[in-house]
Write a protein that binds this DNA or RNA. Structure first.
Lengths: 228, 228
DNA sequence: GCGTTTATGATAGCATTACTATCATTTTTG
DNA sequence: CAAAAATGATAGTAATGCTATCATAAACGC
């Protein structure tokens, strides 16, 4: 049994995958497969074949593959939220806490052996290329009512609060927070696939610190501007 | 025959839909249907039923529905590019040209009767909620090689050039351009569906000018910051 | 330890999707 | 007016996204 576990919204699943061996196998292999095949090519049939269980068994855990994706994505943001809290303990300066957030948003994650069935590195790649598919659907509103986007919104709220703390007069803290969060993911994706949309170089060793500088530059200059 | 037409990349289609009545019907009704149903629920079968033509006939124009989406999205960015050129004619100040770009990115579009089979208002809503699906696929790289993202990249390049013109020392003009272009769309979507991620209010009459202020604030403050 | 929930396996089936193929008919055009 | 091109009509096929049923195995309650 894992040392660390996140309690995720129970609307995400029919049966909690963390509670059984099969459930954990479903998570572990779906992370691997979505990373390899992409979410669109990923199917419960293929997943079943890979873990040697019938498709129908997977449907006992997740209503459909979209919920499974939401589960993975929610896991990611819950985990990031946890890491932000951890990192910012006893850090007094709001500016420093904000910088830490940006750092954590961008930072390349490593596999955390505390949670053996979750590969955080693969998960981050999934977030980079599949995240927006969670809410760009006809079910946004009902999914939202069920609280399925709370982990992401939570992190956004946290970043927005820091912005507000640094400059209480700034009018768009949530918009700025969601903008840089999205950009953090997209710039990485662009660097890999659509390089003319970014100045971040795929091969650069400083890639991640460049991206941090870029985002940090936006946030700090935007909120600390003298109101003309 | 339309007065105005855009020449789009011929890799997008098998037969040019602008060249025939059926083709134009395909475009007109797919814009309507994708706007109504969302891209995921949209199928060639349903489209065929709606225009009274067999599914197979549509496949003679477009290889698959993803290409059709790309066609619509490419149309949008080509059209926006054209409008930017038009608006910025004889405008000397780079700052003003940049502001015009942001304005045009955000501005609510109206139906342009010059192109009777293209409803720009619906098209803009499609871009807001479906754009990223064009490149968040396993085919990004091959699609990119075929030049299918050129119109979007073109607008991004134009905005980046203006940023560079205003501050030649700024290190991330393309990243900043793509960030605000993406944000322009997302903030509108958030306002409608995930309001806690934005400060733009759905019902506000000043909604669009608020969003312009937000984006303008980011860009100007970011690039005109004195290098500390 | 025994009976009963509970979870999984095995297999089947079904409507829809995303195409492809064929052939007849209409329209265009050289 | 004949040949070519575009469309219609219809069929078919593999894969997807499920749902249903029944048997078996594991766990759990007393």
């Amino acid at each position: 049994m894992p040392i660390l576990a996140f309690k995720l919204n129970s609307n995400l699943f029919l049966r909690d995958p963390q509670s059984s061996e099969l459930g954990q196998k479903i998570i572990e292999h779906s992370v691997d497969m979505v990373d390899r095949l992409g979410f669109d090519e990923f199917t419960f049939r293929k997943l079943g074949a890979e873990i040697g269980s019938p498709e129908a068994s997977i449907y006992r855990y997740f209503e459909n593959k979209h919920r499974l994706l939401l589960y993975l994505i929610d896991w990611y943001w819950t985990w990031l939220d946890y890491r932000i809290e951890f990192r910012n303990q006893n850090v007094k300066s709001a500016a420093e806490r904000l910088r830490n957030c940006i750092q954590l948003l961008v930072e390349e994650k490593a596999f955390d052996p505390d949670i053996p069935f979750m590969d955080e590195q693969k998960l981050q790649r999934i977030v980079n290329s599949e995240f927006e598919k969670t809410y760009l659907t006809r079910n946004v509103d009902s999914d939202n009512k069920e609280g399925l986007f709370l982990p992401y919104k939570g992190v956004c709220k946290k970043v927005a609060a820091l912005i507000k703390e640094i400059n209480p007069k700034y009018m768009f803290p949530h918009s700025l927070a969601s903008t840089i969060m999205l950009s953090a993911n997209h710039q990485v994706y662009y660097a890999m696939h659509l390089p003319s949309l970014t100045d971040i170089k795929k091969d650069s060793k400083r890639k991640h610190s460049e991206l941090v500088d870029f985002l940090q530059g936006i946030v700090i200059n935007t909120i600390s501007a003298r109101n003309k």
